[in-house]
Simulated scan of single mutants.
Amino acid sequence: MKKIVVANNKGGVGKTTIASQIVFSLAGRGHSVIAVDLDSQRNLTSSFEHCLVIGDALDMVLDAKPFKAGLGAGEINVIAGHKDLQAQNTDDVMVNVSSALSNSNGADFCVIDTPPSFGDVVYGALLGADYLLVPIELKKYSLDGIEMALEAFIAAQAVNDDLQLLGFLPSRFDAVKQVERDALAAVAAEFEQVVIRHQIRNRVAYVVAQEDGVPLSEIKTKSGKGAQEEFGAFFDWLYGKVNGGA
């Protein structure tokens, strides 16, 4: 089972929307997928209310409890978030989350949404994962945010040498604003090797899809069509990275 962590140390970057659409896209390609919600806000859980819940993320954090699924092609199961996740700060949290993920199985992919920080829960996820994807907004402090995320990745990879950085995905990008175009150019120049050459724009369709808990293909509007095209191009790229283009 290939495990993809979607993380950023800042909220409001479209992290959960991107994670949920990756889940839908993987399932659309015929893969079985577990959606793991490690955020106390439980937004990823809400995106999959129609899917079977097979576990609670709090059990992973407190008891290192792995999940054992047995999914068929295209099926999605959920490890639900919990309101008390944010309050868990014991010394065992990192080890528990890492152990739970490492010992879990039963699906082709596991996509893990995380709280907006690089705390013990997120580091634990990175220690038990295969890939890290970092959505970023192109704002004034984008460069600082990238440096912090790179530091977190390097620290985690020192322990988990199987962890790969997929890259930094520009998210909620407003191509109309010169300041954001300038920020994208600056980020791409400074971090050429790790900035993904796709952008997720600031479209209403993403908000609707997140609120309704549906894939972008179900949003039959002009915004939906644009979102499908750009997210589809990004997902094709990601799929090639994590699945060898198969």
Rank of each mutant, 00 (worst) to 15 (best):
residue 15 K to D: 12
residue 47 S to F: 00
residue 242 V to G: 09
residue 194 V to A: 05
residue 55 G to S: 12
residue 193 Q to W: 00
residue 21 Q to C: 10
residue 76 I to E: 07
residue 245 G to P: 02
residue 152 A to Y: 01
residue 177 K to H: 11
residue 31 H to V: 00
residue 150 L to P: 03
residue 149 A to T: 10
residue 180 E to N: 09
residue 242 V to T: 11
residue 245 G to D: 07
residue 10 K to A: 12
residue 221 T to C: 03
residue 173 F to S: 00
residue 192 E to Q: 11
residue 81 G to H: 09
residue 180 E to T: 06
residue 210 Q to A: 14
residue 202 N to L: 14
residue 104 S to A: 10
residue 162 D to V: 00
residue 146 I to M: 13
residue 88 Q to P: 00
residue 161 D to Q: 10
residue 164 Q to L: 15
residue 213 G to L: 04
residue 60 M to H: 09
residue 180 E to D: 07
residue 109 F to N: 02
residue 161 D to A: 11
residue 214 V to K: 15
residue 102 S to L: 11
residue 93 V to S: 05
residue 69 A to K: 12
residue 40 S to L: 03
residue 4 I to N: 02
residue 154 I to T: 05
residue 55 G to L: 06
residue 207 V to S: 12
residue 164 Q to P: 07
residue 67 F to Y: 15
residue 233 A to W: 01
residue 105 N to V: 00
residue 9 N to A: 14
residue 128 G to V: 05
residue 233 A to D: 12
residue 157 Q to A: 13
residue 194 V to F: 03
residue 115 P to Q: 08
residue 127 L to W: 03
residue 103 N to P: 02
residue 100 A to N: 08
residue 52 L to H: 13
residue 208 V to E: 15
residue 176 V to K: 15
residue 7 A to S: 14
residue 26 L to C: 11
residue 238 L to I: 08
residue 235 F to Q: 09
residue 168 F to C: 11
residue 220 K to A: 09
residue 194 V to C: 09
residue 33 V to R: 05
residue 108 D to H: 01
residue 83 K to C: 09
residue 172 R to H: 02
residue 13 V to N: 05
residue 41 Q to S: 08
residue 179 V to M: 13
residue 87 A to Q: 09
residue 36 V to D: 04
residue 26 L to W: 05
residue 19 A to C: 03
residue 128 G to R: 04
residue 57 A to S: 15
residue 35 A to T: 05
residue 55 G to T: 10
residue 170 P to Q: 03
residue 201 R to D: 03
residue 206 Y to S: 12
residue 152 A to P: 03
residue 243 N to G: 08
residue 88 Q to S: 12
residue 126 L to T: 08
residue 28 G to V: 12
residue 19 A to Q: 07
residue 157 Q to F: 01
residue 228 Q to I: 04
residue 52 L to E: 15
residue 201 R to M: 08
residue 212 D to P: 01
residue 67 F to Q: 06
residue 71 L to N: 12
residue 225 K to M: 10
residue 60 M to R: 10
residue 166 L to I: 15
residue 99 S to L: 13
residue 140 K to V: 00
residue 63 D to A: 05
residue 81 G to C: 11
residue 50 H to A: 13
residue 180 E to F: 01
residue 80 A to T: 13
residue 21 Q to K: 10
residue 5 V to E: 09
residue 63 D to I: 00
residue 150 L to G: 07
residue 18 I to G: 13
residue 123 Y to P: 00
residue 127 L to D: 09
residue 176 V to Q: 15
residue 33 V to L: 05
